[in-house]
Design a protein around this nucleic acid. Structure first.
Length: 472
DNA sequence: ATGTCC
């Protein structure tokens, strides 16, 4: 009978450091211990881990012992031994990889505070759903690859029943006035953000301006969407001065397209060269804000954020014009970004939110659910333990691969039909059942935000074949 | 997330 094999995860659980030792061990186990019972393998590995120096001359285990005892390469900036304590919300629903990444982030010498949101999952460097405050340091991969990925919601002076009454017209309006992924508008609308001086003043941005213009007003791929839905305002004291009740709404989720991705890649490379870190923390490399590179990234990041905002505004403006309606209210927020904020002691810190909604006292934001579950208009309660943050959505419960392998178009179609949702585009990896229950996620963070209202999707457009889920 | 590999 074939022996079970240990995985990298098992080794991490045993206390192995991330990095070379794990790869060495997996190879070694396969070559020499394939027939050894698991318990014996674990016992042996624990012994080597406890006293690697004793195995440096061992005929089989020497490579592992060496990997475990190798002195840190010169110039590598050491992490603190103990992480700064941080609060995790909804800890029972969060995968171990995300927690481990957050612990590593809290060992950075520049870290001063942090928190993990209930929709967290593993990413590059900081987990998605990670919040990290630093002292005078900006970490490109703690902002994320899609700089300024954000939400925008507009409310209209029309009943939400308009959607069921004019479904086909609204579907056409959505298809005609949005572009996703590679598709862009033939004639983008002008916007002041394209004339910003940073495009000329920062060398790396010069080459990014033309494509930024060509992608203006478009949406991204993956989990990005534009949808018509029903807004239910439930808080009579809402900031919009609107009566409680139902409204027609448009909700969009998108980021800074190629512009932000290029900026993120460029400055992450610079950061990794300037602040080399141990293997498990290498993607958390930072730029000192007093350096030229740090200043440049800060300006470029803010430009990408404004660009992402401009794209959302154009999306909503096109749709509003097609509807021949003026919006009554607009709510928007970045959820991949960094801000200068004051900590509880009144000191200035750099707060990175990578898949986290700003939730300072009185700050409005949007936390989307899924295609078949409501999203929430929220008002932050300014809880210090969360570093003034909340989740940026429900979070995945299935990986993209897992969703592709276990779901079928027919199953998703059935689910959408039961919920009364029209879907244009998308792929199986974005199916609603690939996401956690938003109500559980909201319950895990009820102390962080108050609910002002909800947004229930009705007609959803995402990147992909327009005919998908229409009987093809 | 991303002219989905400079």
């Amino acid at each position: 009978m074939a022996n079970e094999t240990l995985t990298g995860k098992d080794l991490l659980a045993l206390g192995f450091p991330e990095g070379k030792a794990i790869g060495v061990t997996l190879k070694l186990l396969q070559a020499h211990f394939a027939a050894t019972p698991l318990e014996e393998q674990l016992l042996l590995l624990a012994q080597v881990l406890a006293n690697p120096a004793e195995y440096l001359a061992h005929p089989v285990l020497a490579d592992l012992a060496e990997a475990l005892t190798a002195p840190k390469a010169p110039g590598i900036i050491p992490l603190h031994d103990a992480p700064i304590p941080f609060t995790t919300y909804g800890v029972e629903g969060i995968e171990s990889g995300a927690k481990r990444q957050m612990v590593t982030a809290m060992r950075l010498p520049v870290a001063v505070a942090g928190a993990l949101m209930p929709d967290a999952h593993q990413g590059y460097g900081l987990p998605i759903g990670g919040v990290l405050a630093t002292r005078n340091a900006i970490i490109p991969y703690a902002v994320g690859v899609d700089i300024g990925c954000r939400m925008c919601l507009t409310l209209y002076p029309a009943p939400a029943t308009l959607i069921t009454e004019q479904r086909d017209q609204l579907k056409k309006i959505l298809v005609d006035n949005t572009r996703f992924g590679r598709a862009t508008f033939q004639k983008p609308q002008e916007h002041a953000v394209i004339d910003r001086a940073e495009f000329m003043e920062i060398p790396v941005l010069r080459g990014l301006k033309d494509r930024a213009f060509s992608q203006l007003g478009s949406s991204g791929g993956g989990n990005h969407f534009v949808e018509f839905g029903a807004v239910t305002l439930s808080d009579a004291q809402n900031e919009f001065g609107l009566p409680v009740g139902e409204y027609l709404g448009i909700l969009s989720h998108s980021g800074s397209r190629g512009l932000g991705a290029q900026i993120a890649g460029h400055y992450t490379k610079l950061a990794m060269a300037q602040t080399p870190l141990p293997q498990e923390a290498r993607h958390l490399a930072w730029l000192d804000l007093d350096t030229e590179a740090g200043q440049e990234y800060w300006l470029a990041m803010n430009l990408a954020g404004d660009y992402a905002s401009a794209c959302h505004h154009q999306i909503h403006a096109r749709l509003a014009q097609a509807l021949a309606l003026e919006p009554l209210a607009l709510v928007e927020n970045h959820h991949n970004f960094a801000w200068r904020e004051l900590d509880a002691q009144g000191r200035e810190v750099i707060v990175h939110r990578k898949g986290a909604t700003p939730a300072g006292l009185g700050v409005l934001g949007i936390i989307p659910g899924s295609m078949t579950a409501p999203g929430f208009i929220v008002r932050g309660r300014g809880v210090a333990a969360s570093v003034n943050s909340a989740s940026h959505g429900a979070g995945r419960q299935m990986s993209r691969t897992q969703a592709q392998n276990t779901l079928s178009p027919a199953l998703v179609q059935q689910h959408l039909q039961a919920a009364g949702i029209d879907l244009i585009g998308s792929g199986l990896d974005e199916a609603p059942m690939a996401y956690k229950d938003i109500h559980q996620v909201m319950a895990a963070q009820q102390e962080l935000v108050d609910v002002v209202g909800t947004f229930t999707p009705k007609i959803v457009r995402m990147c992909g074949n327009e005919k998908y889920l229409e009987g093809e």
